[in-house]
Design a protein around this nucleic acid. Structure first.
Lengths: 143, 143
DNA sequence: ATTTGATGTAACAGAAATGGTTACGACAAT
DNA sequence: ATTGTCGTAACCATTTCTGTTACATCAAAT
């Protein structure tokens, strides 16, 4: 399968906020403004921001002058945090249908694969943990 | 996104072949027999075996007495080999639509993310490379 | 109190991916 | 010539993904 782009939209969103929020007196930006940079619909951004808020990475304000702000320093947000915020399914899926329970392979292989897959996924997350939003911002605006 | 199960079907297939092929005088098994263990349609298995053949992991015979056989020792086939055989898209996708080219983030972020994603994917593959089909078979049939 | 502008969320649509199924020609050993 | 399996196209139902419209909710500002 090709993978979803939620991770990319979320990281783009946080990186843009890291760049722009400090320039605002209140540190607040709107989903419309972010959507303009990502080139998508504001609702898509609000959905993403909802996940990021659930993970404690951003906060939302309502009413007049509403919008979003970062709750953490960009140096302290890793791509692993972002991944965990927006992806909840395991990277590699087991069988679509329960395999044949009369076959020793069918019986025994699911937990073995699950363990190997989990180790691989952890390894990927470890690598994502080495990169912060501040890193992404710096490299993105570098000349 | 939840991920595809091609990897699981392919690994199950190879593990089953590693168990059964040695018991046959000609070392040949059919897609029907494998499908019975995986609990799916033989065509699904033939499609998977096609990818595995393109990667050089199995061979097919046609005509009377046709079927499939392993071309490598199970000890020499890693889960990384299997992954490379059946998955061709990057693990993490970039933007669905080209981001705003008038925004410095929109312009600069794709290559930065691509590099971070590729590093993460390589790390995952490295972990998959540590497990062989022989390992999976052993652990699967262990008491 | 009213106005204002943004959030929060449901509902829906089109496109693509996925897994399964049927069908049938190609093939080579018997 | 028969046989059994591969190889592959075609199609289907289901799900996922991204985008979109619509609208109620909310709180600051006036």
């Amino acid at each position: 399968m090709g993978a979803s782009s939620r991770m990319t939209v979320a990281t783009h969103t946080l990186t843009w906020m890291a760049l722009v929020c400090p320039k605002r007196t209140d540190g607040i930006v709107t989903s419309d403004q972010i959507a303009d940079s990502v080139n998508t619909n504001p609702v898509v951004i609000r959905r993403t921001l909802g996940s990021l808020r659930d993970a404690g990475l951003v906060e939302s304000r309502r009413g007049q002058g509403a919008g979003w702000l970062l709750t953490r320093a960009p140096e302290s947000i890793t791509l692993r945090d972002v991944y965990l915020a927006v992806e909840h399914e395991p990277l590699l899926a087991l069988h679509p249908a329960t395999p044949n329970q009369k076959c020793p392979i069918g019986i025994g292989i699911p937990p073995v694969l699950r363990e190997a897959y989990d180790r691989a996924e952890e390894s990927m997350k470890r690598e994502l943990a080495a990169v912060t939003i501040a890193d992404v911002l710096r490299e993105t605006v570098a000349p």
